[in-house]
Amino acid sequence: MHPIFSDVSRLRTFILLWVPTGAAIGTLPFWRTGGPLDQAWVLVLWGEVLAMPALATWHVTRFVPIRAGRGRVLVTAAIVSLAAAGVWVGAGRLWTQVMAETAPQPAALFGSLAPDAFAAATLVCLLLSAVHYALNEADEGLAAARRVLEAQVAAREAELRALRAQVNPHFLFNCLHSISALTGVDPGAARRMALELAEFFRDSLRAGSQSRIPLADEVALVRRYLDIERVRFGDRLGITVTLQPGVEAVRVPPLLLQPLAENAVRHGISTLVNGGDVSIAIARNGHDVRVRVDNPFDADDRRPGTGVGLANVRSRLAASYGDRAHLCAGAEGNCFTVTLTLPCEEVQA
């Protein structure tokens, strides 16, 4: 959309300014010769019509944006301005000849005064090109700011969703039930669990308020989560977490791995009478970090999961890394595996 027509107030300003400008451009060269002005309306009309080729220069200049370089922009603007002025002068010659019977003066003088009109029209077109560029820049700035804002809102929403998932009511109520149960028989264990739970939520909230946290912190959070679940599941839940030295400082979106651990417990270990191991292995793989979560599950127990957890992780990956990160999930026999590949973003010193 043409930057002047895209906005009503800009269009109003342009028309207000253009009406006297057009009239002046058409008639000025003829004033200098002192000709009779009673036939000037022919020239006023002609001057106003310059608006059309002048505005049309935008259609060419928009293909050569400012970032293409000052030289190319200037050359392009000059060529289109000259062309627009030429078209206008040519149209003026035809117009004055057509109107020669009612207004002989402009037709007679046109030849000698056309060069001045041409120069003035070129100048006006150049000015208008400058206005086009200025307006385009302003529009693009606004659009860029809006995109940044939208990205921020999306990231915030993803974090809120993650936090909401964090405070999974099922997890919270079961933990409170365990604490209530332990209070009677093992007050020390009840207190330990209450403290663990508090630490877990505190860490989650703190992590959630940041855009990236060190992988080591995320892994600590996951460990804490699994330790709490171990109180509920006892020996049914085995935990193996291996973090390759050297990847601790890689920055990741907070609460990215925790939902995977939670899925492994909810849809894996809790479906098995004898439980099993949740295994989390994190290692560098070229320029990427690879996270692999394995858990056994009951393949015969086909109560469907909602898939919300994985979808959530996927959308957070997309929001944080675009297509530089991947998530694969699938079952093989009685083992469910999720593999996460993230680009290495080290802490900046």
Binding site: H177, L182, G184, V185, R232, G234, V273
Partner: peptide
């Protein structure tokens, strides 16, 4: 109940 603490409280 599959969770030991949950059985514990019922027993109590």
């Amino acid at each position: 109940d599959d969770e030991e603490p949950a059985r514990l409280v019922l027993r109590e």
